[in-house]
C-alpha cells in the first residue's frame, strides 16, 4: 500500500507538478542535450514516459510480493 501511494505521488508530481504548476519556471531550462524547454518536455513527452515506467515498476513490485507470499494463480 505504501508503494502504491509512493507511485501515485510520483504520478501526480510529474503531471500536475512538473507538467503544469512548475512548467512556467521549468521552461527557463532546457532538457540537457536537447532544445526542449523543460516544462514543455514534461507536459508533452516526459510525463508520458514516466507513466509507463510507473506501471511497470508496479507490476514488478506486485509480482515480487506475490512470490514472497507464495501466491500462485492457475
Amino acid at each position: 500500500m505504501c508503494w502504491i501511494l509512493l507511485l501515485l505521488s510520483i504520478w501526480a508530481f510529474v503531471s500536475f507538478g512538473c507538467g503544469i504548476l512548475l512548467a512556467p519556471w521549468l521552461n527557463n531550462f532546457t532538457l540537457p542535450g536537447t532544445m526542449y524547454p523543460l516544462g514543455f518536455w514534461f507536459a508533452q513527452q516526459g510525463s508520458i514516459y514516466i507513466f509507463v515506467i510507473l506501471i511497470f515498476v508496479y507490476v514488478l513490485l506486485m509480482n515480487r510480493l506475490d512470490r514472497k507470499y507464495g501466491v500462485k494463480e492457475a
Binding site: 502504491i4 501515485l8 503531471s15 510525463s47 508520458i48 507513466f51 506501471i55
Partner: peptide, 12 residues
C-alpha cells in the same frame, strides 16, 4: 497527459 495518466490510476 489526461489521456495517458488515467492508465496509471487504472493499473494501480
Amino acid at each position: 497527459m489526461g489521456w495517458t495518466g488515467g492508465y496509471v490510476l487504472l493499473a494501480l
